[in-house]
Amino acid sequence: VPALLAEHPPLIEQVPGIPALVVDNEANLAALGELHSQPTGTSSFLHISGEVGIGAGIVLDGALFRGVRGWSGEIGHLPVHPEGRPCRCGGQGCLEQYAGQEAIVAAAGLARAELPADTATARLAELAEAGDADALRALHDAGTALGVAVAGVVNLLDLDTVVLGGGYAALAPWLCPPVLAEIGARVLTAAWSPVTVRPSTLGAEAAAVGAAGSVARRIVAQPAGWLARAG
């Protein structure tokens, strides 16, 4: 999507009947939703959206960091096992292959074909709450892999808050302990500057809230232009 917008912005701006169309990455919108849902909260954090893929929105000093080409936050393709499983990106050992929804479902012994994407997280949570050994092991291993990747990001950007969003929000009770364990073992400043890891306040709705908020803020910033279009 970022590449499409960069190469063909007129295609987006000139859609008949639509005065302004906002297109963005789901992880970025989720991070924006989280940021503006808590105006008195932290202004710098890493928001990780865990679904089939794993994306991250990086917020620094109240602003979304997009990178030079708009591709920042591809945490799902950070290698956590350099010689590990092949990934669809062409690399090996990417986080997505160990902590993506499909990987967790498979490790828990569930049949992915029989479990729709919108019920996978709920089913995993049910099994974990019931003490299912396979589900608990799968979530612990996923949290450990996630913690390795998160620790690298925290060391690089010196963040003190990590937000688990998307499908991870409902699984946070089981993911947070291994994530925190890896952060404690790998982050240089962890001993005297603890890192908070918590579920998103908006959960699976964060991206939708972020998208709606981005449009509303554009209207507030330039109301005259929108009123002219409406007329």
Results as ranks from 00 to 15, higher is better:
100 G>A: 05
83 E>Y: 13
134 D>I: 06
106 A>R: 15
109 G>V: 11
149 A>T: 09
130 A>M: 09
81 H>E: 15
151 A>H: 01
115 L>W: 08
128 A>F: 02
95 L>Y: 00
131 G>K: 11
130 A>C: 10
129 E>C: 11
143 G>F: 05
116 P>Q: 01
149 A>M: 09
87 C>L: 06
90 G>F: 08
123 R>D: 04
121 T>D: 00
89 C>S: 08
113 A>H: 14
95 L>Q: 00
140 H>D: 13
111 A>W: 12
146 L>A: 13
132 D>N: 15
138 A>V: 02
117 A>F: 13
107 A>H: 08
127 L>M: 11
141 D>Q: 14
97 Q>S: 12
83 E>L: 14
124 L>P: 00
121 T>R: 01
96 E>P: 03
123 R>W: 04
136 L>V: 07
141 D>H: 12
132 D>K: 13
82 P>D: 07
150 V>Y: 03
117 A>V: 15
94 C>M: 01
119 T>S: 14
127 L>D: 08
99 A>C: 09
106 A>V: 09
126 E>Q: 07
92 Q>D: 09
135 A>P: 08
133 A>H: 13
122 A>P: 03
99 A>E: 02
134 D>M: 14
112 R>C: 06
125 A>G: 07
145 A>Y: 10
125 A>E: 03
89 C>N: 07
94 C>W: 02
130 A>P: 09
91 G>M: 04
148 V>G: 09
97 Q>M: 12
155 N>E: 05
141 D>C: 11
112 R>W: 11
80 V>R: 00
115 L>T: 11
96 E>G: 10
101 Q>P: 07
101 Q>Y: 09
131 G>Y: 08
139 L>K: 01
111 A>L: 13
133 A>C: 10
122 A>L: 09
140 H>Q: 12
82 P>R: 07
88 R>Y: 11
99 A>D: 05
155 N>F: 03
144 T>G: 12
140 H>K: 10
122 A>T: 12
131 G>D: 07
84 G>P: 02
82 P>M: 06
138 A>I: 01
91 G>D: 00
105 V>A: 02
152 G>A: 06
82 P>G: 04
